[in-house]
């Protein structure tokens, strides 16, 4: 037994030496990336984007770790990064709380931490360098502004006649659902005649989006606008609208968020009117930020994702380049 222990200790020692030398030998910057898992295709595209972007730059080495939706896995991964003395840590927080101690450790080891997409809680934000990601409130506002412009162009809104809007919310309590609702409501406040007749959760899924829209259509026959917190629900709702004998995109204006490929195809087919992009392709911007950091530049406390808005005027042209 004792011999085995010795062998084990030796083995670990050899591994540590190797890993340290592997980090120390080249002049490359080693970046540790801890992803939360692969719970949606948005996340899959996000992971791939970061991996591809760092792989495309030979001055970087990316160590990837998948937490598989468990915080303890993620904290373990972050500790491994610190022990390996990586040059920079990039990570997406699975939940907001509980990262304080490990971020302290990173700070003590003088390893800068850049958050992607999901932030840590307020109290721990001083411990990380910056956060890059989408502004969900702004996405809701963009959707509302687009609608105001569209109604004006079609001269459907005289400022007095009520406009009936229904909303398909994302998962109850999730940040994107709360913020996208808030953003849209901000614009609604400027239009007294816009009325939100129904609002229900579709859990960000196509099948629930469809089922909820079916019930909406029966309860309220004069729905004019559908605002869905993601494209998946919008695409489900489109099928419900068709089954009701109405034309999605014409009889009912359909607004989605995310900019997935399916939504682009629906816009080209004239069944969805617009999608507000929420891009998972954070890789190039992450590489840019880490490069800036290496060059000694100061990073802003918040880096917004570059995102567009796509409707009938530009969707067809953009469709072939969509990656998710």
């Amino acid at each position: 037994m004792k011999n085995w222990k010795k062998v084990l200790v030796l083995l670990v020692a050899v591994m540590v030496i190797f890993s340290v030398s592997a980090v120390a030998a080249p002049k490359q910057w080693v970046v540790g990336f801890s992803q939360i898992g692969s719970e949606s295709e948005w996340r899959t595209a996000d992971t791939k984007s970061v991996q591809d972007a760092f792989a495309g730059d030979p001055t970087f080495v990316l160590i990837y770790s998948d937490a598989q939706q468990k915080q303890e896995n993620q904290i373990k991964a972050l500790r491994t990064f610190i022990a390996r003395k990586v040059d920079c840590i990039v990570f997406t927080a699975l939940v907001e709380t509980g990262y304080g101690p490990v971020l302290q450790e990173a700070k003590k080891a003088k390893i800068p931490v850049i958050m992607i997409d999901r932030d840590v809680q307020e109290a721990d934000r001083a411990l990380r360098l910056t956060i890059m990601g989408s502004d969900f409130v702004k996405e809701g506002e963009k959707a509302g502004t687009w609608l105001a412009d569209y109604l004006k162009k079609q001269s459907m809104d005289d400022g007095k006649t009520p406009i009936d809007i229904v909303e398909l919310q994302g998962t109850t309590g999730s940040a994107p659902a709360i913020d996208r609702k808030t953003g849209f409501a901000n614009i609604m406040k400027q239009h007294a005649n816009w009325q939100l007749t129904r609002s229900q959760t579709g859990n960000f899924t196509t099948s629930e989006g469809k089922a909820v829209m079916e019930a909406f259509l029966k309860a309220d026959p004069k729905i004019q606008v559908l605002y869905a917190h993601n494209d998946g629900m919008a695409l489900g709702a489109i099928q419900a609208i068709k089954e009701a004998g109405l034309q999605p995109g014409k009889d009912i204006i359909v607004i989605g968020v995310d900019g997935v490929k399916g939504a682009f195809q629906a816009i080209v087919a004239g069944e969805q009117n617009v999608t507000v992009e929420c891009s998972p392709l954070l890789g190039p911007q992450a590489v840019q930020a880490v490069s800036d950091l290496r060059d000694g530049k100061k990073l802003p406390g918040r880096i917004w994702t570059i995102e567009g808005i796509f409707d009938a005027s530009n969707a067809a042209a953009a469709l072939p380049t969509r990656q998710y």
Binding site: S40, T206, L235
Partner: peptide
């Protein structure tokens, strides 16, 4: 389920 929404979502179906 697949035919109802004409899509397959490994996460949520």
């Amino acid at each position: 389920v697949c035919s109802t929404v004409m899509s397959a979502d490994g996460n949520n179906a």
